[in-house]
């Protein structure tokens, strides 16, 4: 891949350790405009940590992280104005109504309150939530909360989107809408950086797939490139192969055996 332009995200030599273990061991990564990046890996591989470092939520790492060509440790938080974020767990202030929450988030991103409110109301309407706009988020279903989070991450028209499992809880129709939104945003030059455990989705919508395992990048490229490299049929199988996980048949077999084991339960 040849890129004439500047990368929007440039990570080099990123190491991070929590008190008891190494989470990231030397991540090098350059991301360009218009890419939809599927960031995948087993639980605890360091996906969320990477994203949180880029957002400035986690400190104390070693290495260099540049976003829009500026080192984020310089203390200038204004780069966050051009970033949208959907966190892993549906974390939002759920005693607020969607109107209150979304216009609040809009304000945090420097928007005018009424503008944010108008925009949010229209976006909510498009996702079929117009009736719930003035209802407290605590009464929402999981999918509705996820939609609110998605709206809150895109309300301010960011240039990079960090999404942690963005499709969780959404029904099939909403998934199609959101996937289409991602594709058109990418076509307009936005960058989407997301992680997911659903390999079928990653396989279909990513223009580039990065697989990390044990804090290191073990594969990076388009789906076609990954397939060629590992000679496996689906992303799921590639994932299994690259993360060195080949016992799934044994485990499943044992699991079923335990279920049918009979009277060991009370």
């Amino acid at each position: 891949m040849k890129h004439e332009e500047e990368p929007v995200i440039a990570i080099s030599g990123l190491w991070m350790n929590y008190t008891d273990r190494m989470v990231l061991r030397g991540i090098d990564l350059k991301v360009y405009r218009g890419q939809i990046i599927g960031y995948i890996g087993p639980n605890g591989a360091g996906k969320s940590t990477t994203v949180k470092i880029m957002l400035g939520l986690v400190e104390g790492y070693n290495g260099k992280v540049e976003i829009f060509g500026k080192d984020i440790t310089e203390g200038d938080v204004s780069y966050k104005r051009r970033i949208g974020y959907v966190p892993e767990v549906a974390e939002l202030y759920d005693s607020l109504t969607a109107r209150e929450y979304l216009s609040f988030v809009g304000e945090l991103y420097g928007m005018n309150r009424t503008d944010a409110d108008d925009k949010a109301e229209r976006l909510m309407g498009l996702l079929g939530l117009e009736k719930s706009y003035d209802v407290r988020i605590s009464s929402y279903s999981k999918g509705m909360k996820q939609k609110v989070l998605l709206i809150s991450s895109m309300l301010h028209d960011p240039d990079i989107l960090f999404l942690d499992e963005p499709l969780s809880g959404l029904d099939a129709n909403s998934v199609m809408v959101v996937k289409e939104i991602f594709a058109s945003l990418a076509a307009k030059g936005k960058t989407i950086f997301y992680s997911s455990h659903i390999m079928d989705v990653v396989e279909k919508i990513s223009s580039r797939i990065i697989l990390i395992n044990g804090g290191e990048i073990v594969a990076d490229g388009t789906f076609a490139q990954l397939k060629e490299k590992s000679r496996e049929g689906s992303l799921e199988e590639i994932f299994n192969q690259l993360t060195g996980f080949d016992k799934y048949r044994d485990i499943a077999g044992e699991f079923v055996a335990v279920i049918q084991g009979g009277d060991s339960h009370e």
């Binding site: 400035g56 939520l57 204004s78 780069y79 970033i83 966190p87 988030v105 945090l108």
Partner: peptide, 10 residues
């Protein structure tokens, strides 16, 4: 932390 720190707020 997640909601506020990820926004451009000093």
């Amino acid at each position: 932390k997640n909601i506020l720190f990820s926004k451009p707020v000093n």
